[in-house]
Amino acid sequence: MNTAREVPADLVVDFNFYRPGVEGLDPFTAFTAGLQGKPPVVWSPHNGGHWIVTTGKASKEVLTDPDRFSSESVFIPRVDRPRTVPLEYDPPEHTAMRRAIRGTFLPAPVKIMATEARNLAIELIEAFQPRGGCEFVSEFGQQLPIIIWLKMMNLPMDDRLELLEAVNAGIRPKDEAHREWGRAYMGAYIDALVDDRMANPGDDPLSVSLQEDIGGRRMNRSEAVGLATTLLGGGLDTVATTLAWFALHLAENPADRALLRTEPERIPKAIHELMRRYAIPNIARIVTRDMEFEGASLRKGDAILVSACLHALDPLEFDNPCTVDLTRKNAHAHLGFSAGVHHCAGAPLALSELRIFLEEWLPRIPDFRTDPDDPPVVMTGIVNGLERLPLRWD
């Protein structure tokens, strides 16, 4: 195993975060089994070679210090494409870029979308509830947030299946050919979308953002492509993935199900606790200068990976971290929305959709379970997710 670096042997781990453990293993278990108890920063020779942060303390430090850890590339391995906006910009450029999308997630537009999301959630649930089962990911998890997001973006509903597959190929590729297909498809789709919205702006978030002032000018085409990439990637995957983990946990934990059904006022806090326990993002940063950090000699240009689940499951950060405690007081301190200047701008809409799921599903399908003959199928990568989640109820 060639590390391509002179890294002390005790800091080298044979850990590929795209394939973190035994096929089908819960990725959170795979991450903790493979990395907890290791030094705070270790080196993986996979995916071009990069550092991995293994503790909660170091994870927060990396995500909140753009001076030492730049956001210029959040993917491992690096992708040759325009930087995503504002995800891959550091202050002060990041400040103006983020300001350009602020109108999308103000209370008024989020409230409008929440009303549509609630109506859609009820329609989806009541369509399959009489059947006594569903495949949650395709029939609900991917439907609710994606339909809402495509409506916000004024994009055709017919595009959603191929868009979903392309996003999955980019963040959880089956192999290199799948990754390359996803990049090519998304690249062509985004190029066409940006050309259309620059020539014919509408009232969608991309069009509005392209008209905003970012330090005395408007976004150039490269920045517009980067913004479209961020909007599509976030809107098409992260909420869908989080919904699936919520559904799996509740299917396997009837006491938590019953508590939220009988005491729905607990739902807002419960959302953060479930997001903490099933923290999905694996976020990269780039080291800005040679330095010593947590016992490791980092070099300028090195990539360093922060896995939100290693922070969430660190017992120094959360008591009994593997246990879901729906009354946990510090659950909101999770990194599911990242941290620092890059705290997710879309968090208000995401939280609204997650709340709507719990509020509308539990009264209609109060008792449900996984299917022992058709178990869940997990996927790992930039986001830890579920490919399939068959559920059954009486």
Rank of each mutant, 00 (worst) to 15 (best):
S207E: 04
D195Q: 04
L164M: 03
G202D: 01
E180V: 06
D203C: 08
R131G: 13
L106T: 15
Y185E: 08
Q143F: 05
L164A: 09
P92E: 13
A121Q: 08
R99L: 15
N200A: 11
F128D: 04
W149D: 04
G182N: 03
L120T: 01
Y189K: 11
K111A: 15
L161P: 01
A184W: 05
M157D: 12
F140M: 09
R160P: 00
G182L: 01
L206K: 06
H94D: 00
V137L: 03
N154Q: 14
P173C: 09
E93R: 08
Y185K: 10
S207W: 07
L150Y: 10
F140S: 08
Q129V: 08
V137W: 03
R99D: 13
M97Q: 04
M186A: 07
Q142Y: 08
M152I: 09
V167H: 02
H94L: 01
L155S: 03
T104D: 05
P201A: 11
P205K: 14
K174E: 02
G133S: 09
A100D: 06
L164N: 02
D158V: 12
E180L: 03
A188I: 05
G202R: 09
E139D: 15
Q143E: 12
A127L: 14
P156S: 07
I147M: 13
P130E: 02
A96T: 07
D191T: 14
M157Y: 14
E180Q: 07
I147C: 02
A177C: 03
I147L: 09
D90W: 08
M157L: 14
P107W: 00
F140Q: 03
I101Y: 09
S138K: 01
A100N: 03
P205L: 07
P173W: 03
L163P: 00
W181T: 04
M186L: 12
V137K: 01
L150R: 12
A169Y: 05
P145Y: 07
R172V: 07
V110K: 05
F140D: 05
L155E: 07
